[in-house]
Simulated scan of single mutants.
Amino acid sequence: MTTPADVHDVRDPEQPGRLLATERDALIPLLRGRAAEDFARPVAACPGWSVRDVLAHCSAALTRAAEGRLETGVFSPESNDRDIAARSGWSDAEVVDELERGMTAAGPVIARAGGTLDGLALGEWVHAGDVREALGEPGAYGGAGLTDALELLARLTRERGHVPLHADLDDLDEPLRLGGSGGERPPGRFIGDGPALVRLYTGRSAGGAGFELAGVEAEELNLYG
Rank of each mutant, 00 (worst) to 15 (best):
E78G: 01
G129A: 07
Y224L: 15
R177F: 11
R87T: 11
I191A: 15
G192Y: 10
A154H: 05
G115I: 00
D53T: 11
E98W: 01
A134Y: 03
P77Q: 02
G33R: 04
E98A: 14
L169C: 11
G73T: 10
S88T: 13
D97S: 13
T147V: 15
G89V: 08
D83P: 01
T157P: 02
M1A: 11
Q15V: 10
R18H: 06
P13G: 07
H166T: 15
G208S: 04
V7C: 12
E174H: 12
D92F: 01
I191S: 14
R52K: 11
S88A: 15
L55T: 09
R24K: 06
G102R: 04
G107T: 08
L30W: 08
G33L: 08
P186K: 15
R41M: 11
R41I: 10
G73W: 03
D81F: 02
G194S: 05
R34V: 02
A105H: 10
A86F: 00
L30P: 02
V198L: 15
E212K: 13
D173M: 11
R11D: 05
E220C: 06
A105Q: 15
A45V: 00
V54D: 01
S205N: 13
P175V: 09
L27G: 05
A35D: 15
D12H: 12
R132E: 08
L117E: 09
D9A: 14
V126C: 04
G33E: 07
V109N: 09
V109E: 13
R185I: 12
V163E: 08
R132V: 04
A40T: 03
V7P: 09
E159F: 06
P187G: 04
D38M: 06
R132F: 00
S88N: 10
A21Y: 00
S50N: 08
D12I: 07
E14N: 14
V163G: 01
A36V: 10
A93D: 15
E184R: 13
Y201H: 15
L99N: 03
V43D: 03
T157S: 11
R69L: 13
C58D: 14
L70E: 04
Y201F: 15
E98S: 12
D38H: 13
L200A: 05
T3W: 11
P164D: 07
G102P: 05
A121H: 07
R101L: 14
A93F: 00
E98I: 02
R41D: 06
R11I: 09
G194Q: 06
C46K: 01
A93G: 00
H127L: 07
A40Y: 05
I110K: 08
V198C: 09
N80W: 00
L70K: 08
M1C: 03
T104L: 12
R204T: 06
E217S: 14
H162S: 14
D170N: 10
E37I: 10
R18N: 06
F211N: 01
A167V: 04
L150M: 13
A140Q: 12
L169A: 04
D38R: 13
V43Y: 03
V7A: 14
R11A: 14
L55D: 03
T3N: 09
G119L: 11
G33H: 08
G119K: 04
L169T: 08
E212T: 15
